[in-house]
Design a protein around this nucleic acid. Structure first.
Lengths: 121, 121
DNA sequence: GGTCCATATCATTCCTCGCTGATATGTTGT
DNA sequence: ACAACATATCAGCGAGGAATGATATGGACC
């Protein structure tokens, strides 16, 4: 718990880094995108089709995921193909599912905070 | 990606469950609390001292974490001792640190979204 | 070069959530 | 029963960010 106040000089502590990374995953749209990319690399319009999200919305989230280093992109003709940047990401998603097996009902029940937004349509 | 639209009847799809769980971790205050509890079970006032968060704030977050099943509580005299509910949680936190080793700079650089809030003081 | 398609950007709106301050509940010891 | 401490609850404020619609960029093919 020393690290709670550590890195105060750098402006971003270990905890804040963790929180920021978690935030990257804490959105249904981004999870839908990552889930689709976990199966295969996809171009933007393919992601749009599969997730049924709007194109600007997907593009915005992809930029966020790209800046965060969670996905990578390669130009492929007129398309830009996105892919998961590291197998650690799929590993993390699997761990979350494993944890959900234990705490699923609890998470559903939590109405105070973490109400969250729903995936559109 | 069929599961994106699955469970529409239940109101909560797999993706939304995942997002909700991630949200539980996507806050510096809750991460500080969980980090402290990972080392040892603690009473509320001890968490307040270590994290330097306000007492109502800690209490609110603990309620959220308790409802979500991420922590458990036992009465111990006039104290209420909180503890991590499952070793899978510490495992998840370790995975996040492992992923951070890879994408740390990227996450720091992401200014578009996920600006996040800082830990107080 | 011009048109089409794929993708990115911008401004605005709306909603969620975290923090605070005051207060309520509850438990222990005298 | 009362005093003191530990914890929980509540209303209100403020900020961050997600989605939308319109628009801009940019490569590919004729």
């Amino acid at each position: 718990m020393d690290q709670i106040i550590a890195d105060r000089n750098t402006g971003t502590s270990t905890i804040e880094r963790r929180a920021k990374l978690f935030r990257g995953f804490a959105d249904p749209s981004r999870l839908a995108i990552l889930g689709a990319l976990c199966e295969a690399p996809l171009a933007v319009h393919e992601i749009v089709t599969r997730t049924e999200l709007s194109q600007p919305n997907v593009s915005n989230h992809l930029r966020c995921l790209l800046d965060c280093g969670l996905v990578a992109s390669d130009r492929d003709g007129r398309f830009i193909r996105y892919r998961i940047s590291s197998p650690r990401i799929t590993a993390l998603l699997n761990d979350v599912d494993a944890l959900l097996d234990v705490v699923a009902e609890g998470v559903e029940a939590c109405e105070n905070y973490c109400e969250g937004k729903m995936l559109k349509t």
